[in-house]
Simulated scan of single mutants.
Amino acid sequence: MKEQIGLERLTGLIAFARTASLGSYTAAARDLSVSPSAVSKSVQRLEEHFGLRLFSRTTRSLTLTPEGREIYERALRVIREVEEIEQAAVASRGEPSGTLKVTAPLPIGVNILAKALPAFRQRYPKLTVDLRLGDQFSDIIEQGIDVAIRVGNLADSRLVSRPLAPHRICTFASPDYLARRGKPETLEDLAEHDCINFRYQSTGQALRWPFQVGHRLLEITPNASMTIDVSDAVAAVLAAGGGIGISPTYVAAPYVERGELVPVFPEYAVDRFVITALWPESRRGSPNVKAFLEFLQEVFPAITPWDEIVATAATPKSL
């Protein structure tokens, strides 16, 4: 007679799979909303039950053992089956309810989603939103994410995608800075200015500034006086008169609306990739996902309000 799996062992499998996916007890604990020690103890009890070492542990990292790798693959299948059962139950209710897990890059979450979510919750009061902000490209399915918003599209056949809006970037500066230093007339003039650049946290690479000049896409590497790895911090430095920098229009738009930033070379602004919604194929029939995707169409209209603000500021005022 087969031994029945206990609740403690199932909890251990979930803790183990999350730890293996994210690479640490701390990250797994954050994802599961428990303490790191609880995750560690669950994994240790699972190892004791199996009589196997699932991880090779060092002071800096956890690495799956060969036996751990095999159990990890099997554990993922179990967790996916459980999630599909949950999704079937959600779909049978027909009404959005329960928890909706959403992930998005920090700038999009702060500047677009955070402002919109209260209206979404008012519309669906039985639905709880779990919003996770960050640029790490973790496995959406393994993390149990319902909808992910990303810049660009992930090449994953298990995911369905929908474009939301262009990810438009443009150069900006404060009126005060331009009054002190003068407005550059050509791209070559940028060499004479203080440039504030952005660095990708995921790669450590500094951004090469793209400009759409006619049919050509030109890229330059500015001689930066400052390099910052958060888009909102770049915009804050620019608004404080720090120099000229490049920013997504949805980050810069509130500053432009307040008169703290103005677009520089708006005629060369570039649609850099596309803001995209992605969701697992298994979530296609979920009322929660359907409701959120419909809401995203309102949040990201054909002409986005942030691009409209920047375009209006770039239009010469008639006398």
Rank of each mutant, 00 (worst) to 15 (best):
S231L: 06
P305N: 06
I5M: 14
V102L: 15
T128M: 10
P66T: 07
V82A: 15
G23S: 00
R93Y: 12
K2W: 06
A240D: 15
L113H: 01
V34W: 05
A269Y: 00
I5F: 09
K317R: 15
Q136F: 14
R283Q: 14
E8W: 02
T227V: 13
P301N: 10
R162C: 04
I108T: 08
Q143S: 12
D31M: 03
R162P: 00
E8P: 02
L207H: 13
E3Q: 11
T99L: 04
L296P: 15
R53I: 01
V237P: 05
W279R: 10
G51C: 05
L159S: 06
H167A: 14
R80T: 07
Y200C: 07
V129D: 05
G94E: 10
P96M: 01
G12S: 03
P210W: 04
S42W: 05
P280Q: 09
G94W: 12
K290M: 05
K2C: 05
K290Q: 11
F295Y: 15
E260N: 02
F16S: 03
Q122T: 02
V274M: 13
R258K: 15
G182S: 10
S161D: 02
E219M: 09
A119C: 01
Q297R: 12
S24Q: 11
I169D: 05
V34E: 12
R18K: 12
E294C: 02
P184Q: 07
P248D: 03
G182M: 09
T58A: 10
A116P: 06
S35R: 13
Y250S: 01
A233H: 09
A38E: 13
F292R: 00
